[in-house]
Design a protein around this nucleic acid. Sequence first.
DNA 1: CGGAGCCTTGAACGGTTTCAAAAGTAGTGG
DNA 2: CCACTACTTTTGAAACCGTTCAAGGCTCCG
Lengths: 213, 213
Amino acid sequence: MASAQDIWCQFPEDVKLAFKKVHKIKRYKRGEVLYRAGDFPQGAYFVASGLAGLTYSSNSGRETLLRLLKPGQFLGHRSLFAGEPYHGSAVLLETSEIHFIPKEEFFEILDRYPLAYRPMVQSLACELRQAELRIASMSDKDVTARVAETLIYLKNVYPEHQWTRREIADFCGSTTSTVIKVLSKLEGLEAIKQDGRAISILGLDTLLELAFQ
Amino acid sequence: MASAQDIWCQFPEDVKLAFKKVHKIKRYKRGEVLYRAGDFPQGAYFVASGLAGLTYSSNSGRETLLRLLKPGQFLGHRSLFAGEPYHGSAVLLETSEIHFIPKEEFFEILDRYPLAYRPMVQSLACELRQAELRIASMSDKDVTARVAETLIYLKNVYPEHQWTRREIADFCGSTTSTVIKVLSKLEGLEAIKQDGRAISILGLDTLLELAFQ
DNA sequence: CGGAGCCTTGAACGGTTTCAAAAGTAGTGG
DNA sequence: CCACTACTTTTGAAACCGTTCAAGGCTCCG
């Protein structure tokens, strides 16, 4: 799983300027919601700081963490491009600064600066690879491998975040209970160390071994 | 799961013409391979007729059907846009006519006709939704629901194709044996009818009920 | 200091896979 | 047209892995 792109720093200066002219800046706290599955997109969101997550909650009530958005990434652009309602809800996982670009201005900027397409499309393409490889992981790997893989990924995306057992479970398609059991097994293997709620990686090599067999 | 877009028919005439000028046409039979995971993309493929599949085979040997490409869809464009090697292999599931567009010409056309971006990006965006919702399905639904969902989807994508139990299993993250057992259960519920290898849907409502609970 | 949300544990349960072996079917080429 | 080969379908029993459930303790934040 390669880390996602920082789109912003790939934009030419004039594109950055154009976005800066039209975006609305707002701060959110953990747990707040940007939009909900089923809503029709009114614009695109850009994570300036903090951490956001795209989640899907099924009929049976199970939550799945579909995607993580760190600073420099867009959110809600998929629905805009597809011309569809949101398929998941956007939730803040950390205190964050979010920029909102109304959809008219969003497309207007893309039309005016076709160069702006590239980083946007590139990130969509990366996200598609990540999603498809996760499908393969889910049908192929046992929980231990999935938790190991997830730990590596999550720590890489946002090392400062205190990842909860629930978030890990929601990301790798398991349950809080099971993740807790796997974590203590990983601690036994000296691959990680748990300090209260904090999890630190001791043996990346061991984790990689477990994750990718 | 909405059906994917036919990109071709969304292109303006001049774009179609530009593609026609540079593509190389070739016919393939079932089982032949367009490219393999890890290869670096040399261009984009376009399915003119037939059916292709993007597959991933894990270290343990399990195959996963990541994506299905029917006439009117591009293939290999994701890697081009992302600037990455292929994450899966492209295999023909039916006798097919495939057009190949070398990457230089591909990007040159996009630069010349920025309008050509839209359908391309739209399809990427749809594929991302489909992939992410499959992640949620896999962690949430039991095999019966996944097989039901898969039957509906596959029959919708390419009704003429004789979907094998293995293809169904590879798509929904299960095994041939299990799919066979589920299919006979579905036949008992009069949701489908099996005639040798052929599978026909009798009760779409029953299937939908099972798939989406 | 109260309360919501997070962490933890063990035992029992249950859904899928695994395995192996046999029969069926499509496609190939002599 | 037949024989051969490779692939697909089918079945049941046993094993296994992960979830479920419930109850209790913890911790962070307002």
